[in-house]
Design a protein around this nucleic acid. Structure first.
Length: 692
DNA sequence: CAGCTATTCGTTTTT
DNA sequence: CGAATAGCTG
């Protein structure tokens, strides 16, 4: 096989012809259809290296976009392996959302935001919707929030939403959509969806900004392209402009985020919007043995195809996937734990070679318990993230408020935790006053009119708090009206330490929680502080700059503290992009793995049937993703009965098991027919086994 | 106003 | 069965 260039030998060495073509193709827009495990990350990293080393691209002009922070840091890591030091650092490898933040911070004025705008997380946003709708119906609130999110992602404005709202839930959503948007503006805050939507709108409306960014982004690479939504597609189009120098990498069979507004149509749209589009297929799988791949192909063949694609592997036949039938979810957890323990011993491998994947987070509970009983180390991913923890959100609320005192949600949280004599009554009076005067809660604290609106005692607490925040703002360099003066700011670390000290957060934790809980929470606070300080030192960021970045970053970025040797527990969604020698899929049942959504579609049975079919297809892709995580062995487990809420529900094996062409008959089960006493004996035997 | 108890309620996936 | 919330008391 001859290579097009002689100088690229080291860069494309070890790539197969399709991969090499994908790396070297630079004549125009390029779509790489990368099947599971076909080396797509390799293609992206090699292509970036190729652009820099062989094509004279400046690293700062190359942008690679991913969906998760994890994927971004992984990609950055791998690129730096190919591109030494300074070149690697200048690259932009980030999530869509992080890039959106960066663009918005620089161009904020163009969309009527101050550069220090806050980023609201889902909970803050939900709180706003709750106030607007004046209801506590959580299901309704979630559905409204979701609907608004879909509209935003689909670039539907409130005016249009009011027209198209069909169901009752949609009408509720349309009712508050506009005021929700206005509230965010009043708070000088944006939600996650705005981080894509506003940059897209901004580039569309402002030619100078568009040209500035287009000349900055000379080459764009997009990972997991099948998961982009309408907004993201628009943003990609605007960033690349008429030159259309980009590579999109994706796999329509792994599209699992339609519920979040992603459209596979974006793949098809590419072929029509860019007639010159070069389509390259990566069909060789380097991950799984043939029998696992065959199962995956069999399942996905039941879906309609957008692009014809056949994955193959030369890793040998391997083991046939095994179906496990369990009595109930407790037995399932126990059983999987036992099997993993035994398999580690028999195969002489490590805990980290195993993963248990499942549909919903709640399934993790039973599994965790079983693993703990058997003293099997495990790590959970996809659960509650570090930045969702209450103590972290508390501290961040203070920082947000210091950076942006229009941020009312941050004000409420900071003012009331720890308790300092500001309660419901005070806040209500303050809120009413601020609402009438059209000012932020923070600003209202200092107004003369408050003196008649509140008893003196309560107002004193409020003003004390307000003065405290003001002092911190001043120390953080925010009092200065001119950004240049920020140079005279104290070190961020000092301010942070003083802040935590001043609010007495540690004492608060130990007063409100028991020893153990308080300790772990305080540790999280320390971790957060250390991380913030390190970030401030390394990147020379001011506290202000830091706070503005922090909302999106996950702790995964902090240190490459190498993964401990532990079994991985993960949702199917969070497992995408990862691989494990031995994979156990838990809860492969009708209703769970094709997940039973709420089937109360309004009226039209034809539409309902169609949406059901679409949903099943997405569930099937989720199953496909799960299967293709496995390298050597695959176990699928389902329960005859599962405890849900307070009653037991009888379950059927998932239709996907049949689609895989597997025998649902259970193989010999080590715990089958054992009495509880015998089972305990078996557990003990496992525990005393060598290597445990 | 803050902490406690009793009663709800409810279960998908996430930047 | 467990967690988050609402309502009550000190």
């Amino acid at each position: 096989m001859s290579t097009p260039f002689t100088s690229d030998g080291s860069l494309t060495a070890g790539l197969n012809p399709a991969q090499r073509e994908a790396v070297l193709y630079l004549d125009g827009p390029c779509l790489v259809l990368a099947g599971a495990g076909s080396g797509k990350t390799r293609v992206i990293t090699q292509k970036i290296a190729y652009l820099v080393k062989e094509c004279g691209y400046a690293p700062r002009n190359i942008v690679a976009l991913t969906f998760t922070n994890k994927a971004a840091s992984e990609m950055m890591h791998r690129v730096q392996g190919v591109l030494p030091g300074k070149a690697g650092k200048a690259l932009t490898i980030s999530t869509f959302h992080s890039l959106g933040v960066r663009l918005l911070r620089e161009e904020a004025r163009l969309v009527g935001l101050k550069p220090q705008f806050s980023i609201l997380d889902a909970d803050d946003a939900l709180g706003i919707i709750q106030d607007l709708l004046a209801t506590t119906d959580k299901a309704l609130l979630r559905s409204v929030q979701h609907t608004i999110s879909l509209w935003k992602n689909g670039l539907v404005e409130p005016e249009e939403a009011e027209r198209i709202a069909a169901s009752a839930a949609e009408r509720d959503a349309a009712r508050v959509y506009r005021s929700y948007r206005d509230t965010l503006i009043a708070y000088q805050a944006v939600d996650f969806d705005d981080l894509i939507r506003l940059p897209a709108r901004l580039l569309e409306e402002h030619a100078e900004a568009r040209e500035r960014w287009q000349s900055r982004v000379r080459y764009l690479l997009v990972d997991e392209y099948q998961d982009t939504n309408v907004c993201q597609y628009r943003l990609v189009r605007l960033l690349t402009g008429p030159r259309a120098m980009f590579t999109a990498v994706g796999d329509d069979d792994q599209a699992i985020y339609a519920w979040r507004g992603a459209t596979i149509e974006n793949l098809a749209k590419l072929t029509t919007d860019y007639p010159a589009l070069k389509v390259i297929k990566l069909e060789q799988n380097y991950r799984s043995v043939q029998r696992i791949l065959a199962a995956a192909n069999a399942v996905i063949s039941h879906n309609p195809k957008l692009f014809e694609k056949t994955l193959w592997s030369d890793l040998g036949a391997g083991e046939t996937p095994v179906v496990l039938t369990q009595d109930n979810d407790e037995a399932e957890a126990e059983n999987l734990a036992m099997r993993i323990s035994a398999a580690r011993f028999e195969r002489r491998c490590e805990w980290r070679d195993f993963a248990i994947l499942y549909r919903g987070n709640h399934q993790a509970r039973a599994l965790e318990q079983a693993l703990r009983t058997l003293k099997i180390p495990y790590t959970i991913s996809g659960g509650q993230s570090f930045f969702d923890k209450a103590e972290v959100r508390d501290i961040l609320a203070y920082l947000r408020l210091i950076a942006n005192d229009d941020d009312d949600p941050a004000f409420i949280r900071a003012a009331t935790t720890p308790k300092r004599g500001i309660g419901q009554g005070t806040l209500h009076a303050l809120g009413t006053y601020a609402g009438n005067r059209q000012v932020s809660l923070y600003a209202a604290v200092f107004e003369q009119g408050m003196e008649t609106a509140l008893p003196e005692r309560n107002l004193r607490f409020l003003r004390e708090f307000g003065n405290f925040i003001q002092r911190m703002q001043w120390r953080a360099g925010r009092g200065a009206s001119d950004a240049q003066e920020a140079a005279s700011t104290e070190p961020a670390g000092q301010i942070l330490d003083d802040l935590i000290q001043a609010i007495g957060y540690e004492r608060y934790l130990y007063d409100t929680f028991d020893e153990r809980a308080a300790q772990s929470r305080w540790q999280n606070v320390i971790d957060l502080m250390d991380w913030l300080k390190r970030k401030a030192d390394e990147d020379g960021m001011t506290l202000m700059a830091l706070v503005q970045h922090v909302a999106l970053i996950t702790m995964l970025e902090r240190g490459e503290d190498e993964e401990p040797d532990a079994v991985k527990l993960s949702t199917l969604h969070a497992s995408k992009g990862l691989e494990y020698p031995h994979v156990y899929l838990a809860g492969v049942e009708e209703g769970l793995l094709p997940h039973q959504g709420r089937d109360d579609e309004d009226g039209d049975p034809e539409r309902a049937a169609e949406s059901l079919a679409t949903r099943i297809q997405e569930e099937r892709r989720l199953m496909y993703v799960g299967i293709t995580r496995a390298q050597r062995s695959l176990h699928l487990s389902w329960c005859k009965r599962r405890r849900r809420a307070r009653e037991d529900v009888v379950r059927e094996p998932s239709r996907f098991i049949k689609e895989m062409g597997l025998d649902a008959g259970a193989p010999p089960d080590p715990a089958a027919g054992m009495s509880p006493r015998e089972r305990l004996g078996a557990l003990k035997a496992l525990l005393t086994r060598p290597g445990n």
